[in-house]
């Protein structure tokens, strides 16, 4: 809806008050952060500049290796979540009966405080990246199952009939009708699943790990290293925001082609 102006040249959207205030919002947060740093002092709040400096200093030493561990656990866990979530969601969505049986169960599992089950993953995989990745998968897989399942369920029977009347083969039917019909819903599941998987990685590294950004974060509490802590929080927030933004743009492009299928957040 806010994109009506996006197709016009840049000069016009800069005059749009919504765009301007959207751009000003992070600036306002930055100013607020700076003011808090002045008001409370650097024992409690590291200034934005000090936090960036801590990150820049870390870039030569601890940051690269630990960010690498976090990124690896994230890719590993998200890969598992996507593969398992899409396959399970698709299979459950194919049958009306299976969908009716499992949907409330999956939704209930999604809403449970699963974080306290992390020791089970530590028992299974030890203090390794694998336990972080499988735990993160356990967070991220449920939204992916739910959205894929509902997307599959909602593939219009008219579309399928058209496909059959065109005598499409099964792979053709899947490629040109079923998959494009599921995609907008799947994309929303992939976006939400990513966010939750990322949260799972950070939480698991905060709880018990020897490396990773979550580990450094908790360590910086013990060392009372405020600039590193604020810098890391900024880094993690920006990363999540940017990846989610990319997913949203993709989703918007997909739903623009299928205007009847707009999924809310």
């Amino acid at each position: 809806m806010a994109d009506a102006t996006a197709s016009k040249p840049g000069a016009t959207w800069l005059r749009d008050p919504v765009r301007i205030s959207q751009l000003l919002f992070p600036v306002a947060l930055l100013i607020l952060w700076q003011l808090l740093a002045f008001a409370l002092g650097d024992f409690f709040v590291a200034s934005p500049l000090a936090s960036l400096r801590a990150l820049a200093e870390g870039a030569g030493s601890w940051l690269g290796a630990n960010a690498g561990v976090t990124l690896f656990a994230l890719v590993y866990g998200y890969g598992l979540a996507v593969v398992i979530g899409v396959v399970v969601g698709f299979l459950l969505g194919l049958s009306r009966f299976a969908h009716a049986v499992f949907e409330p169960v999956v939704v209930a599992l999604y809403a449970l405080p699963k974080v306290a089950l992390y020791p089970l993953f530590l028992f299974a995989f030890g203090l390794t990246v694998s336990s972080q990745a499988w735990f993160a998968m356990f967070f991220g897989v449920f939204p992916i199952i739910i959205f894929t399942m509902n997307g599959t369920r909602n593939v219009g029977s008219v579309f399928l009939k058209v496909g059959r009347s065109l005598r499409l083969s099964r792979p053709q039917l899947f490629r040109s009708i079923v998959f494009p019909a599921i995609l907008p819903s799947l994309a929303a599941g992939l976006r939400i699943g990513f966010g939750v998987t990322f949260l799972g990685v950070i939480l698991s590294q905060m709880f018990a790990a020897k490396s990773g950004l979550g580990f450094v974060l908790v360590q910086s509490v013990e060392l009372h290293d405020m600039p590193t802590m604020y810098g890391l929080v900024l880094l993690l927030t920006l990363f999540a925001f940017l990846v989610n933004g990319a997913f949203l743009l993709w989703e918007r492009r997909l739903t623009r082609n299928h205007p009847e299928k707009s999924d809310a957040f």
Binding site: R191, I192, I202, M206, S220, L236, F241, F265
Partner: peptide, 20 residues
């Protein structure tokens, strides 16, 4: 309309990073 993109992104942010 200003906050819309930020609110839709909110739950993607690992808020627990703020806990320490």
């Amino acid at each position: 309309r200003t906050l819309d993109p930020y609110l839709t992104t909110y739950y993607a942010i690992p808020i627990f990073a703020f806990y320490p």
